[in-house]
Design a protein around this nucleic acid. Structure first.
Lengths: 155, 155
DNA sequence: TACTATATAGTAGTCTATCCTATTTGTTCG
DNA sequence: CGAACAAATAGGATAGACTACTATATAGTA
């Protein structure tokens, strides 16, 4: 990309990288150049990249980096809380023939999807910034967590 | 969901199958036994099954059915509006390092994810039925649709 | 019954993500 | 500063989800 970043942006970045190093140490994680590069690539991306996209970016600095490293690192970022997996992404397609109003809770462990129905969630108002520019097909409240069965297993 | 009467189930099912046949004819789709079996399997499932789960069920009636047929059929069900793909499922993992409050709009065509921030969505109250039984990790308003760029392309 | 467009089975291929193992590298501690 | 150990990595193998392809079969119809 052309165009140098302004000084404020660059120092902002430096602060975040510093915080990241601290967070890694807190969690007993080693500071490897690959890990730093993955986090930096994610920070600099304005999209919400997939592992593959990050992989391509990091490869420019570390031609020998493996996709597995990128995947592992991204999961680590999620685990230590400096990044997260965008809601709902990453699992196989699931189907629903119940056309009535309802919402879904999804267990991040066992991938079970549980229906619930909370009337206030049935008709959410779409903010102007979205409604004016995009065609909205669906809007829903989506809850993720750990279901009762998986919670029991952990104890 | 709660509140389903056992004795009315079979006639309820017959009605839905009849509606389905009508919907197929409306859309010029042939009534094949495989298609009926896939829809029936989806209707009867209380989970939100994946193609693989439906495949296993249908295979009990049609041992020779192929996974491809199940996949195609499920997509068809989505297209004619008698079923749908649970929000957010089916795409590759996407990452986000922005920890501030915000929500996501996802384009179903190009998979682009656009941030927006609508303050009323920041602190959604979880209904008791969920909060009491499950560990809630994330709750968010999730909007799906077609983005401006993809909408242009279609014209 | 015969025709035609659609649907299907079976297989191959693609894409995503994880697993495995030998090797390398941070970090700690002497 | 240098050795030792645990953690991380590269690269290839593997698994799973989905799509593409093609020859065959079938539903709808005239």
């Amino acid at each position: 990309m052309l165009g140098e970043k302004g000084n404020s942006k660059s120092s902002e970045m430096q602060k975040k990288m510093g915080d990241f190093v601290a967070k890694c140490r807190q969690n007993g994680l080693k500071i490897t150049p690959q890990r730093m590069a993955v986090y930096r690539a994610l920070l600099e991306s304005k999209e919400h990249p997939s592992a593959e996209m990050i992989f391509r970016t990091v490869k420019e600095v570390f031609p020998s980096v493996s996709l597995d490293t990128v995947n592992r690192t991204l999961l680590t970022l999620d685990e230590i809380g400096v990044a997260f997996i965008v809601e709902g992404s990453g699992d196989s397609k699931r189907y629903d023939a119940n056309l009535g109003d309802h919402q879904h809770f999804k267990c991040v462990k066992c991938k079970r999807i549980v229906d619930f129905h909370h009337k206030p969630f049935d008709n959410i108002k779409v903010p102007k910034s979205i409604g004016e520019n995009f065609i909205v097909l669906r809007k829903t409240v989506y809850i993720e967590g750990i279901c009762d069965l998986c919670a029991k297993k952990q104890n």
